[in-house]
Write a protein that binds this DNA or RNA. Structure first.
Ligand SMILES: Nc1ncnc2c1ncn2[C@H]1C[C@H](O)[C@@H](COP(=O)(O)OP(=O)(O)OP(=O)(O)O)O1
Ligand SMILES: [Mg+2]
Ligand SMILES: [Mn+2]
Length: 836
DNA sequence: ACCTCTGGCGATAATT
DNA sequence: AATTATCGCCAG
């Protein structure tokens, strides 16, 4: 075949890669990147890189002969010849140790699977490595071309119509000859957010009624349902088919680099695809006239060639949401918190019901509202994208994987890729993922010992200081050089060791080598970045910076967790357990020193110490902090978290011990930090949460409980008089698995079954809402659990809400002040012991 | 197909 | 009636 990829015109340009894929051109696998030039031209860059994997030879064999044998592998596969192109003997490192390995270059990355299978049968072969590295990842690593990092490209411009063997809608296509990192330019965010309204929620049922598109200045609503006095953004089309065509047309005209949805992997795009199929429309949203494609699996990812489809819901769900206050991560809640705007309120159920029935009646005013509602969703999504962009981009740069992957990734993926993308400079070959049986065995391993948590003495404390280690366990990994490749069974001079601790039923001690390992090294660099981000957040607090700091902190902590993760390439529960053992040693030591100094240590969880200042000063506390820090090894550092005016610690409900992981602290600025209490839990009703919140606030601000008690008595009275609004009595519990797989059928499971019967969309992951209604109190609670709609005003179970929701939430707090449950329930404002 | 880890509280059902 | 198992969610 004559090459069509030559090109004539020499070009030099600066380019930012946004989207990556690979494809065969002229019989060779090419990387294809889509992005922008520094002149803001839409650009496609083609490049190649070697496809290869590694073979480790058995000891004592003739390497040259082995290499020659491997080099001869050739077979027919998928209607082409899969063969080894060349084999090189290389000096590499594996798990930190020098090793001779064969680098096996193959004709096509897709052939690695079949070729490695043959090579594995050779008696000379000990192991195969890096056979599962994605070709895009391979390219990013070997050519040092990173997602969202500008590169200078020198190459040949290809004539799109004559020389490029695929359709491509960009301003320029370049075959790269040379490509290297260069200075940064501004990237103008060219994107479109979209949202679809349909007559049904289930993919494959119903039809699309309306689609909205939005960016910072473009607003558009498309619908086939005609009505008068439509807002100016609305454009009417003939039918659903034309609606889909028009949607595609707008995307092709506006040419966004990013297509952004909220839950669009789970709903909008699968639904759109189903409807396009039904209408015999080819759903082409990308740059190469190809169909929208989906990755397989329970949570499919919708990929569009040349545009980065970002489902913000997945990023928020996996990475971003942890620092948010919002009760759910619905678009409404997240947008409200981050941009201060909400969805429009409409009766969606009514409208979709009317739209489903052939004789449905919808008023023009309702359709207007519906259109604006749909548009607002797209607008919120677009604003959210701009808000989250920086975090997405930063994380993408840290792990060097494409935005498409990073925006959908969980922490394990980020951890793994942060390591993989840094191996090259250590000349390291990547370890393999576990296979088959190994995974099962790892999953069944016993838990190792984790953190130390001190039992607090329940009381109200004045002037509380809180110390907390910065990135504690990651700093232990770095300071003690802990990782699977640096783990030793015996002590090495100049190396590191753990205290003795119980592991796998035996007293053990582990050792780590002196020579810095690549994982501790990579983590050290991440910690430096995280330290900067934490400082930036302290200087200039914002929810977005807080989320970024949290993501980097958690990426570091998940690197510790990765050691004990069954799917890890660098798996070592011994390391996980060593880290926690060292952490227990240092937190005990820290507690001891603070006590020796004369402070009363109230509580400690993992890496924090809370103590009462007593008759000492904040200056004294800072002094001991400095003293402790002088004794800490490596990069470990204890930080002053804050000084608090007052704090409360309570008993467990059983009343025998002080409750761990439950406390509240009043800061000097009036803010109350609540941890573990029902007030911060999703699965309690609002009335119980709010009541507890008020009680904590009152007792902390006043240092006594009389006003708080009066408040609770008032609330209980209203509950008894059936005055509590149903919304505040709704209990929300997540259905964590398929309904059938529950062994214990709690109220939320039973309600989920009921919802399913009513045709409501319920599946694993749904948040089930229910109210306990009045009924036979001798029966199980689940028998009284009803959908909120089914409970009329005042129809709730008074005793349940008093005995099971409100009183349990406040009784341990009042117990600190000597007030009993009976006093709360009977409303007798008796004098407590302290007042005699 | 994918999944960071352990410690802990408390609600409810299930079992004895 | 008391104890144990299951479940969800949170702290770190
Ligand atoms: N999500 C997590 N996964 C695994 N381990 C965790 C996680 N969160 C906390 N830990 C462990 C490791 C932490 O170093 C340790 C103390 O937690 P914490 O004080 O909240 O964070 P940190 O010490 O890592 O950062 P910070 O500087 O914010 O205090 O507990
Ligand atoms: Mg901490
Ligand atoms: Mn900490």
């Amino acid at each position: 075949m004559e090459s069509t990829l030559k090109g004539k015109e020499q070009v030099k340009l600066d380019f930012i890669p946004l989207d990556f894929d690979y494809l065969d051109l002229d019989g060779k696998c090419h990387i294809r990147m889509f992005g922008r030039t520094s002149e803001n031209k839409r650009c496609c860059v083609l490049d190649t890189t070697d496809a290869y994997f590694w073979l480790f030879p058995r000891a004592g064999i003739d390497l040259k002969k082995y290499a020659e044998k491997v080099a001869k592998i050739s077979l027919e596969h998928a209607s082409r010849i899969a063969k080894v192109e060349k084999v090189e003997i290389k000096d590499k490192h594996f798990l930190g140790n020098p090793i001779k390995a064969l680098q096996v270059f193959v004709s096509n990355p897709k052939d690695i699977a079949v070729i490695k299978d043959i090579a594995k049968t050779f008696h000379e072969t000990l192991e195969k490595k890096e056979t599962d590295i994605n070709f895009v990842t391979r390219y990013i690593i070997d050519k040092n071309v990173k997602p969202l990092e500008w590169v200078h490209v020198e190459g040949r411009e290809l004539n799109q119509y004559i020389e490029v063997p695929f359709d491509v809608d960009t301003d320029i296509v370049v075959m790269a000859d040379e490509i290297k990192p260069t200075q940064e330019h501004e990237l103008k965010l060219n994107f479109l957010a979209f949202d679809i309204e349909s007559t049904e929620f289930e993919i494959g049922k119903g039809e699309i009624v309306m689609i909205s598109l939005a960016d910072h200045n473009f607003h558009k609503v498309l619908t086939w349902k005609k009505y008068s006095n439509a807002p100016e953004e609305v454009e009417f089309v003939k039918d659903e088919a034309e609606l889909i065509e028009k949607f595609m047309k707008i995307i092709h005209e506006r040419k966004p680099d990013f297509l952004v949805g909220y839950f669009s992997d789970g709903f909008d795009l699968p639904y759109l695809r189903a409807r396009a199929e039904q209408n015999h429309i080819k759903l082409d949203l990308g740059l190469d006239k190809s169909n929208l494609s989906f990755s397989r699996g329970i949570m499919p990812s919708a990929k569009i060639t040349g545009r980065v489809h970002i489902d913000l819901y997945r990023f928020v769900n996996n990475i971003f949401a942890y620092t948010l206050q919002s009760p759910t991560i619905s678009l409404n809640d997240v947008a409200k918190e981050l941009i201060g705007e909400e969805k429009l309120e409409i009766d969606l159920g009514h409208i979709t019901k009317e739209l489903r029935s052939t004789h449905g009646k919808i008023k023009d005013a309702e359709m207007r509202r519906f259109s604006l509602y749909n548009l607002q969703d797209a607008v919120l999504t677009s604003k959210l994208f701009l808000k989250l962009w920086n975090n997405l981009a930063e994380l993408t740069k840290v792990v060097s994987e494409p935005l498409f992957e990073v925006s959908r990734a969980r922490y394990a993926y980020l951890v793994e890729n942060n390591i993989l993308h840094n191996l090259k400079r250590f000349n390291e070959i990547a370890a393999s993922r576990p296979l088959g049986e190994e995974i099962g065995e790892r999953r069944e391993r016993e838990k190792y010992i984790g953190a130390f948590v001190k039992e607090p003495r329940p009381d109200v404390y004045e002037k509380v200081a809180v110390f907390d280690f910065r990135s504690f366990w990651p700093s232990i990994i770095v300071s003690f050089n802990i990782s699977m490749p640096t783990l030793l069974e015996k002590k090495e001079s100049g190396g590191y060791e753990t205290p003795e601790f119980e592991f796998d039923g035996k007293k053990r001690k582990f050792y780590f080598q002196k020579q810095e390992g690549f994982i501790p090294r990579i983590l050290k660099e991440l910690l430096e970045k995280r330290k900067e981000t934490k400082a930036e957040f302290k200087r200039n607090p914002s929810p977005v910076l807080e989320a970024k700091d949290y993501a980097l902190k958690t990426l570091a902590n998940a690197t510790y967790g990765y050691f004990g993760f069954f799917g890890a390439r660098y798996y070592s529960p011994e390391c996980g357990a060593s880290i926690t053992a060292i952490s227990r040693y240092y937190i005990h030591k820290t507690i001891d020193e603070i006590e020796k100094f004369g402070f009363e240590v109230i509580y400690s969880d993992t890496d924090s110490v809370m103590f009462a200042l007593g008759n000492k000063t904040e200056k004294d506390a800072k002094e001991i902090l400095e003293k402790i820090n002088k004794t800490l090894p490596g990069t470990m550092e204890l930080e002053l978290e804050n000084f608090y005016v007052r704090g409360i610690f309570v008993m467990t409900k059983k009343g025998e011990t002080g409750a761990k992981k439950k406390y509240a602290l009043l800061a000097k600025d009036g803010n109350i930090k609540i941890r573990g209490f029902e007030a911060v839990r999703r699965d309690r009703c609002d009335l119980a949460k709010e009541t507890q919140d008020v009680v904590l606030k009152k007792v902390l601000e006043e240092g006594k409980a009389d006003n708080a008690l009066a408040y609770v008595i008032k609330i209980l009275k209203e509950v008894r008089e059936k005055k509590a609004p149903i919304e505040k009595l709704i209990i929300r519990t997540k259905l964590k698995k398929a309904i059938e797989s529950y062994e214990a059928r709690g109220p939320h499971v039973v309600v989920a079954e009921k919802m399913l019967e009513q045709g409501l969309p319920v599946k694993a992951g749904s948040l089930i809402e229910y109210v306990i209604a009045k009924g036979n109190s001798k029966e199980r609670i689940r028998e009284r659990a009803k959908l909120p709609d089914e409970v009329e005003k005042g129809g709730y179970d008074i005793d349940y809400y008093i005995e099971h929701q409100i009183v349990p939430a406040v009784e341990t707090i009042f117990a600190v002040f000597g007030i009993t449950k009976e006093q709360i329930i009977e409303g007798k404002k008796q004098k407590n012991l302290g007042e005699f």
